Simulated scan of single mutants.
Amino acid sequence: MEVIAIQKSALDRMNNELKALLQLTKNAMGKYILIFKAEKWLDNQEICLMMNITKRTLQTYKDKGLLSYSKLNRKNYYKLSDVQALLEAGHPYNTNDNGSTDE
């Protein structure tokens, strides 16, 4: 085990900087917390499993505007209510064995 000795003032400064960073993170997350608490959001994998579709079919739904999504940190999220509405309407496209879609 390695022991490092630093001055108490340096430790206090680091502690204060970490607290400030934590507060900045909480402030940045604050505007998203209410959005995610208001409704259940699902990612690509959860949608594909729920709808029993491939990632390519999911991309087609997005490209055709059939399923809206929001992007957060380069990851797509979908409202559960939008997915349920699409399921209730029936799958607009079916995926062939080769991965292409029929209209």
Rank of each mutant, 00 (worst) to 15 (best):
K55S: 10
D12R: 05
A38H: 04
G90W: 02
Y93F: 13
S68W: 03
D97V: 03
E88F: 05
L66I: 01
I47N: 02
E17M: 11
G65D: 03
T60L: 05
Y32G: 03
A5R: 12
K8H: 10
D102P: 01
L58I: 06
S9E: 10
Y32R: 04
M51G: 08
L58S: 00
K71P: 01
K19V: 15
P92S: 15
D97G: 03
A38Y: 00
E103S: 06
L49T: 15
N94M: 12
K26H: 13
F36K: 02
G90S: 03
Q84W: 03
S68K: 08
Y61N: 02
L11S: 08
A89H: 10
K75Y: 08
Y77I: 01
K71Q: 06
Q23I: 12
F36E: 09
K19T: 09
Y93I: 13
N16Q: 05
Q7G: 11
F36Q: 08
M29P: 01
Q7V: 05
L42I: 04
L58C: 03
A38M: 04
K31F: 14
N94P: 02
K31M: 06
A38K: 07
K62P: 00
Y77W: 10
M14A: 11
S68D: 07
W41T: 01
S68T: 06
E39I: 02
A38E: 04
L24T: 15
Q84Y: 09
S100R: 05
E103Y: 09
V83L: 06
L18N: 05
L67I: 03
T60A: 09
M51L: 12
Y93M: 11
Q7S: 14
S9R: 09
D82F: 00
S81H: 01
Y78K: 06
V3W: 10
A20M: 10
K75G: 07
P92Q: 14
L24G: 11
S100A: 05
D102V: 14
M50G: 02
I33Q: 08
T57Q: 07
E88M: 13
Y93E: 09
K31P: 01
N98Q: 09
D43P: 00
D43W: 01
K40Q: 07
K62S: 08
I35L: 12
D97F: 04
C48P: 05
T57C: 10
T57I: 12
Y77D: 07
K75E: 14
T101E: 12
S9H: 11
L67D: 02
A85D: 08
D43H: 01
G99W: 10
M1G: 14
